[in-house]
Amino acid sequence: MSPLFLIRLVLDFTAAGLLLVALAYWWLDNTSHELIGTGMFILLLSHNIFNRRWWAKLPRAVCGRPSLVTIASNISITLAVSALLVTSLLISRSVFAFLPVSGGPTARDIHILAAYWAFILAAVHVGLHWSMIMAVAGRLLRVGPPDAIRTAALRGVAGAITACGIHSMVVMGIGDRLIGRPSIDFWDFQESTVGFFLHHIAILGACACAAHYAAVWLRWGRAALRPL
């Protein structure tokens, strides 16, 4: 396994972690939030540089028979992150305050909307690549070939994570965040900081599980419809 590939994987998960931390805006001061966001954008830029061949092949892939789910996921997260970047520049009060641009409440609302969509789409992106991630982890940990007991146990864990994630979506009001509905409810970080992150990790896990198994079922469906 290429060391460069492992480094890329670590950088990608670091970018996802920075996005999660950046969502805890009321736990951070504004400057820390902007620095964390800047670090995340740098890592995402490196991710796209590493995957530039995928983007170069995209026009031909659309004309063929690729995984349309993967293409839609990648384009969607790119649009969400682009909106996040543009609004970050418009409302920056620290890192990019020197720029001759400014945004008002609308830019701030779009920024929050894009942030939560980027979070959900990042989870979907992880889920669509979960088989590859598990294969890498299996080689690193020297895990043997799949067996029925381990597979059943992992599916049970996935089910539990999904249930926790659905509960956390309700607790955190993710539905309102994803449609840009105004809310005055903020997490009380003085009461529980860990709870905020656990809820969001559960949401990430639930969306990743849903995306992974949806992709698996789609592959099974295509295989079943394939002529003998």
Rank of each mutant, 00 (worst) to 15 (best):
L4A: 01
L6D: 01
I7E: 00
V10E: 00
T14P: 01
A24C: 06
W26T: 07
W27Y: 13
D29R: 14
S32N: 12
E34C: 09
M40C: 11
L43R: 13
N48W: 08
N48V: 06
I49D: 08
F50W: 11
F50T: 09
R53T: 15
R53F: 14
W55C: 12
A56D: 10
P59H: 10
R60C: 12
V62E: 06
C63M: 10
G64S: 08
G64E: 05
P66E: 03
P66C: 07
V69D: 14
T78H: 07
A80Q: 02
L84G: 12
L84R: 15
V86F: 15
V86Q: 08
S88D: 15
F96K: 04
L99G: 15
G104I: 11
D109S: 04
A118P: 04
A118D: 04
F119W: 07
V124W: 07
H125A: 04
V126A: 04
L128F: 02
L128I: 04
L128D: 02
I133C: 03
V136Q: 12
V136P: 07
L140F: 02
L141G: 02
R142Q: 02
V143M: 01
I149N: 03
T151K: 06
A152D: 05
L154F: 04
R155I: 07
V157W: 08
V157T: 05
A160T: 08
T162P: 01
C164N: 01
G165D: 09
H167R: 10
S168T: 01
M169G: 14
V170Q: 09
V170I: 15
G175R: 09
I179M: 08
I184F: 11
W187L: 09
D188Q: 00
Q190P: 03
S192A: 02
V194A: 05
H199P: 03
H200F: 08
H200N: 04
I201Q: 00
I203A: 13
A214H: 09
V216E: 06
A224R: 12
A224C: 05
L228E: 01
